[in-house]
Each structure stands twice: as C-alpha cells, then as structure tokens.
Amino acid sequence: MNRVKLLICFVCAIILSSCLSQNKKINGASFVAYGIPVDETHTKPLVTKINANFAAVMPFGFIRGLNSPEIIHNTERQWFGETRAGAKQYSEELRKQNIKIMVKPQIWIRRGEFTGFLNMTSEEDWRKLEESYTSFILEYADLAQEINAEILCIGTELENFIAKRPDYWNNLIDEIKKIYKGKLTYAANWDEYKRTPFWNKLDFIGIDAYFPVSDEQTPSFEKSMEGWQKHKPVIKSYSDTYQKPILFTEYGYRSVDYSGKEPWKFDRSMTKVNLEAQVNTTKALYETFWHEDWFAGGFIWKWFINYDKVGGKDNNQFTPQNKPVEPIIKNYYSSY
C-alpha cells in the first residue's frame, strides 16, 4: 500500500510540475541603459516591485539618418549601458537577482526617426549597411553567448530593411546561430509581424505589441478587452502556423488620455496624465494573453534604473514605476 501511495504522489507531482511549467511566463521589463554601472539598488526593485523574472538589456547603435549606411556602436562616446561592457555588467548584476536576460540591441536614428523607414538609395549603400549591421549584431550575439543569455533579439522594427534585403537576413540568422546557441527572436512592430519572412528560423514570434484597443479618453477595462478580440485570433494564427510561441518583445501604455488609441505614440502634445487609462489597458492585455499556453510572456516598456526618482502620479510616460499600474503588474507576474 505504501508503494502505491508513493507512486500516486509521484504521478501527482509530475502533473503539478507540468501545469506550473505551462503557466510560467517570461515576466519581463525593458531595462533602460544609463551612463553608469548598476548595482543591487538598481536591479532589486524589478523583483520587489513587480516580481520580474526577465529583463531586456538594450545596447545601442546609432545611425545619422534614414539613408545613412553606417551604424556607430560600442564606442567610448556612448553611455556605459549602451556598450558591450555596460550590457555585460548590467546582465551580471541582474543575474544576482535571479533575473534572466534577453539581449536586445537597438538602433537609434538621429532625431528619433522610425527605424522601420530605414532605406538606402543605392546598392552600394545597402551593402555597406549590411556589413555594418552584421558587425553590430554579431558583436552582441557574441556577448549573449559569453554571458549565457537566455534570448537574443536580432533586431527591432526594421521592416523596410528586411523587406528590401530578405536574403541578407536569412544568411544573417545562419551566421548568428554559429556564434550564439540560445533562443532567438526578432521584435516586429505591431503592424509588421504578419509580413516578417523568417519566423520559421527563430524560436519566438516577437511583437512590439502597441495594438490599438480603444478610442476612449479613459479606456475602460471592458472596452479594452473588446478591442483585443480583433487582434488576438490573428496573433494566435501565427503561433499555430509556425508552431512558435508569441513573445511581446515590448508592450505597455502611457499614463495619458487616449492611451489605448495609438499606444505607440510618443507625442509631446499628449500631456494630460491619466493613471486609470494605463491601469485599464494594461490589465486587459494581461487578461487577454497571460493565461494562454501559446503565449510566452513579454517585456513591459520601460523600466529605469533609479527607481525612487522616476515615474509617479505626475508622470505621463510609459514607465509603470511608482504608479497605480505597478501592483497590477506584480499581481500578474506573481501569478504566472
């Protein structure tokens, strides 16, 4: 009888473990690069305030304009956190809090031009851009392998570059895999992912999830839930087609009026703080996706290192820090 009971307990433990593993999500935050190294005072709030288990570390490359082929990266003129050394130090400190790492190299085009519009005017410049991007991304593929990062994001919102040079991107992914042996994704813009041609070569379908969900000045939770119903089935269909989990490489809402209408907008005319709007839209996103087994999780945009000095009730930006939405995030991150 004791052996039978032991067997039953063993089987139950396996079933429970399986259920827990299915429920466990990538509960991430986009960890903003600064000009200084970080320590426990900067990394611990990710755990104590929102119970994050992942962070996106974001080194940067810079381009002078939409038609410029040169990516400037890993130089002494950049902020520490934007360089290879900084990304490594940030990752090592985050690890001390048992936080896993996605290395997510980003490009900044002068004057904040949208990276999706990057476009060369000659074959020569396209080839120069390809050489420059290869140097940039392989630098951080090597870093990701060195620090055993769990995920590497191979690019962010580069639709035109990908559309115009598909062979280059397929070959680039093969080169990345020679260096980095972990999981790969790409961060497609919310209206781009349906045209991304290489999902079959990656481990996650990555989406920067700034989908419009409500035209209301203060989006209600109910209307925001309704707004997701036109997007969710399409998103799931891509998971089904490619047999890959969906990962929100970025997601989040500003604490402003009409935050669910065009969530991608960083418009300086949008200044009126609306904390309830941020709460309702964020909660609707969690209720829509976080319980789905085909959904891997995501990275809230964005988390600053000096916790006590950012966010707050007068802040109208994306960060959830020191706002009513913060305990909402912690609740869902703790549940999955």
Rank of each mutant, 00 (worst) to 15 (best):
P212D: 08
N200I: 09
W290C: 06
I99T: 06
N67C: 08
S237D: 05
R110P: 00
G65R: 01
D257A: 09
Y168W: 09
K88M: 14
D308C: 00
A187D: 15
F266I: 10
R111T: 12
P263Q: 11
L138T: 15
I300W: 07
G227R: 13
E216H: 00
Q145H: 09
E192V: 04
E262R: 10
G311K: 00
F221W: 12
A52L: 02
K302D: 14
T75P: 12
L285V: 00
S17M: 08
Q106F: 13
G311V: 03
F211N: 03
D174C: 02
E222G: 02
K181Q: 14
A277H: 02
I305L: 04
M120D: 12
L46T: 01
G61Q: 04
F54Q: 03
S132N: 07
F62Q: 04
N53C: 12
M1T: 11
G86F: 02
L172G: 05
L143S: 03
P45L: 03
A187F: 07
P59Y: 01
R64I: 00
S122E: 00
Y286A: 08
L20C: 11
A52H: 03
D142M: 07
N74Q: 07
I72L: 14
E82N: 13
K201N: 14
G312T: 06
E226D: 14
N23V: 01
W294Q: 08
I72P: 00
S21W: 15
K5F: 13
I26T: 11
V256K: 12
Y140F: 15
D174L: 14
E250L: 05
D174Q: 14
I72K: 15
L202T: 12
D142L: 10
K244E: 07
P166D: 06
D240V: 08
L7S: 08
A209F: 09
R95P: 00
W294V: 11
Y286S: 08
R268F: 12
V256S: 07
G182C: 13
T48A: 12
F114A: 11
E287M: 09
S18F: 15
E175N: 15
D167H: 11
N2Y: 11
